[in-house]
Structures are given as C-alpha cells and as structure tokens.
Amino acid sequence: MKVRIGHERNTAIADLLDRALNKGVVLWGEATISLAGVDLVYVGLKVLVSSVETAQRMRSVHASDVALLGRRGA
C-alpha cells in the first residue's frame, strides 16, 4: 500500500514520474528514445526534457487517467 502524507492531487504521480523517467538503471547511455509522442532526447545520460515538463503535458492530455489513478491509489 502506498503512503501519502500531505500530498496534493498529483503529487504521487509527479514523484513517480520524476523517478521512472529520470532515474533507475539505464541500459543504453546514448539515444534512448522509446517514448511515443514525447520529445525525450537523451544525450549521454542527461535528459534534455525534464519529467516535470512531461508531467505538465501529460496532465492536460491525460486528465482522465490521473483521476482514475487517484481512485486506484487511494
């Protein structure tokens, strides 16, 4: 069960995006572009488009998904 303390509506998904899109083990150091519809370009290990920008874009596009996740994760 996930713990959420003092979070706003989208804090959990923002925290997860910060991690899943920017951190974790990277198998290829160069040109990992497997994300459909998002201009994520890696040069070496540096992400040029931050997950925060990605999250903001996603919030507008996938508002219904966020609402669904809020129910699932509650």
Partner: peptide, 22 residues
Amino acid sequence: LDVSCTGPWAPYSFVTVRPPEA
C-alpha cells in the same frame, strides 16, 4: 512548511550502476 511524502517506491534514486559506455 508544506511537506508531502509519497512512497514506497522502487529505489530509483539509489542505483549506481551505469551502462558500459558511460
């Protein structure tokens, strides 16, 4: 202060392994 805390997550921020070319 407005402090929020979420988790537990997989330990994304604490892996140290890098791909060979790095």
